Simulated scan of single mutants.
Amino acid sequence: MRVFAALGRYIDHADPATRIANSVALLVGSNGPFYPAYVWYLAPEAGPVSLATMAASPFFLAIPWLSRRSAVAARVALPVVGIANTVWTAALLGPATGVAVFLFPCLLLAMLSWREKTAMFVLLGAGLAAQQALLRWPWPALSGLDPMVQGNLVALNAMSVGALLAVLVASLAGLLRDHDVADGRGTPP
């Protein structure tokens, strides 16, 4: 239980949007080591190369630390690291794995910086540009996987993104509900 209390303190922040960003960063960063295991199971040929996808985990895990220095930087860092990780994973495993769907949570995360309109629009633009680049990816995957094997990973990536989007939407809904209650427009849960 002490570990959970320490993790709670690590992601805590006075700004609710930053607290959500910290929670998501911790969730994604801590799940980074499991992704290669799933890939290895579904596409053993990609197993060794998929270990390189864990390279982004330390960056995700550092976002709550960054939030202590700058809440804006932390909210910006999360979609930036997510976009970079998505492009990196596509380069490793191939765009036919459907990994580009991870850009959708990145776009939603860009909305967490809604108070910083310039940051929000730059991040949204970066996410959409990355999506277009992955749709037109001209190079073979570094793993050398053929498209049939890459296709085995589409369901994994779709399920992962669905779960992540559910967490994000639930977190944002809670933030909006809490805001409405604080403004006297809603009822407490």
Score class of each variant (00 low, 15 high):
Met54Thr: 14
Ala56Asn: 00
Pro58Val: 04
Leu61Arg: 05
Ile63Trp: 10
Ile63His: 07
Pro64Gln: 15
Trp65Thr: 06
Leu66Ser: 03
Leu66Ile: 11
Leu66Thr: 08
Arg68Val: 00
Arg68Ala: 01
Ala71His: 05
Ala73Trp: 05
Ala74Phe: 02
Ala74Ile: 00
Val76Asn: 02
Val76Ala: 05
Leu78Gly: 12
Val80Phe: 01
Gly82Tyr: 04
Gly82Asp: 07
Ile83Phe: 08
Val87Thr: 08
Trp88Glu: 01
Thr89Glu: 06
Ala90Glu: 03
Ala91Phe: 03
Ala91Pro: 11
Ala91Gly: 10
Gly94Gln: 07
Pro95Val: 10
Gly98Lys: 08
Gly98Ser: 09
Gly98Asp: 10
Val99His: 06
Val101Cys: 08
Val101Thr: 03
Val101Pro: 02
Phe104His: 08
Cys106Lys: 09
Leu107Val: 08
Leu109Trp: 07
Ala110Arg: 02
Ala110Gly: 07
Leu112Ser: 14
Trp114Met: 07
Trp114Ser: 10
Trp114Asp: 12
Trp114Glu: 04
Ala119Val: 14
Ala119Asp: 15
Met120Glu: 02
Phe121Glu: 11
Val122Pro: 07
Leu123Asp: 02
Ala126Trp: 01
Gly127Leu: 11
Leu128Arg: 00
Leu128Cys: 05
Ala129Trp: 01
Ala129Ile: 01
Gln132Leu: 13
Gln132Lys: 09
Leu134His: 00
Leu135Asp: 15
Leu135Val: 15
Arg136Val: 01
Arg136Trp: 11
Pro138Thr: 06
Pro140Tyr: 06
Pro140His: 12
Ala141Val: 08
Ala141Arg: 03
Leu142Gln: 14
Leu142Lys: 11
Leu142Val: 11
Leu145Trp: 03
Leu145Gly: 07
Asp146Val: 11
Pro147Tyr: 05
Pro147Asn: 10
Val149Ala: 15
Gln150His: 13
Gln150Tyr: 07
Gly151Glu: 06
Asn152Trp: 02
Val154Ile: 12
Met159Tyr: 11
Ser160Thr: 15
Ser160Met: 09
Ser160Arg: 14
Gly162Met: 07
Gly162Ile: 10
Ala163Gly: 15
Leu164Tyr: 00
Leu165Ala: 12
Ala166Val: 04
Ala166Thr: 06
Ala166Ser: 01
Ala166Asn: 04
Ala166His: 00
Val167Leu: 06
Leu168Gln: 13
Val169Glu: 09
Val169Leu: 15
Val169His: 06
Val169Phe: 15
Ala170Thr: 02
Ser171Asp: 13
Leu172Arg: 06
Ala173Cys: 01
Ala173Asp: 14
Leu175Phe: 08
Leu176Pro: 08
Leu176Phe: 15
Arg177Phe: 13
Asp178Tyr: 00
His179Tyr: 02
His179Gly: 01
Asp183Arg: 15
Asp183His: 09
Asp183Lys: 13
Gly184Trp: 12
Gly184Thr: 13
Gly184Ala: 10
Thr187Phe: 08
Pro188Glu: 10
Pro188Tyr: 05
